[in-house]
């Protein structure tokens, strides 16, 4: 049996170790998880995990500096692709964070800040375990119960123009899209690598997903 190669994109932003360890934990003996900065490895990989952390501007800068922006864009259009946290936000057209920055424009829409002016009791960042309401079926939801809790930490959220890309929603003062998917791409604002059994199940589902 052929080995399956899964590339975890390393552009210097984010807790790659957590992501790669969680993927390794759920990978079978035929699956190899590689953390890489090499566009060729991303090109050759069967599927791609795109994590991210920190500010959108710094992430975009790092993607350009490392030459990873183009390979990531290509991968997002042609093979099973999992975006996590900032790895979801920078897929959008534009982020309002820190005065604004243009992003990868793979999914049309903006990244905007929570408006909690009506909820002075709620804390920001949105940090901790919140429920994801699965708004559409998806292979990556397999064996993950409806409204399961995932670990979040963020102050901005994605607002896609095409609402049919929304596959999960979460409420923190306002209801926001926590999960987007198009074709071969699935991206989640929460951290599955830190979300105990449901997060691990999501990795397992991703590793066996052919992108359809």
């Amino acid at each position: 049996m052929n080995r399956k190669l899964v590339a975890v994109v390393d552009y210097g932003m984010g807790n790659l170790r957590s992501v790669s360890k969680a993927a390794e934990h759920m990978a079978d003996e035929y699956t190899k998880i590689v953390v890489t900065q090499d566009p060729q490895v991303i090109h050759d990989a069967d599927s791609v995990i795109f994590p991210g952390q920190g500010a959108a501007k710094a992430c975009m800068q790092a993607l350009h500096d490392t030459g990873m922006a183009e390979p990531v864009k290509l991968a997002a259009q042609e093979k099973p692709f999992l975006g996590i946290c900032m790895g979801l936000q920078v897929l959008m057209s534009h982020s309002d964070e820190n005065g604004g920055v243009d992003c990868l424009d793979i999914i049309k829409g903006n990244v905007t800040q929570f408006d909690l002016s009506a909820h002075p009791e709620l804390k920001m960042p949105h940090m901790g375990w919140n429920q994801i309401h699965q708004t559409q079926d998806h292979p990556l939801w397999h064996s993950i119960p409806q409204d399961s809790r995932f670990y979040y930490v963020h102050s901005y959220y994605v607002a896609p123009e095409d609402k049919s890309t929304i596959f999960g929603e979460t409420t923190h003062g306002q209801t926001f899209p926590g999960v987007l998917s198009t074709h071969n791409l699935f991206a989640i604002q929460a951290h599955p690598e830190k979300s105990a059994e449901h997060g691990l199940q999501l990795f397992k589902n991703f590793l066996s997903w052919n992108g359809h």
């Binding site: 804390k123 940090m127 901790g128 375990w129 919140n130 309401h133 409204d147 979040y152 409420t171």
Partner: peptide
């Protein structure tokens, strides 16, 4: 449906 209080 909201954020859970955490035990650490």
């Amino acid at each position: 449906m909201s954020l859970a209080k955490r035990i650490i």
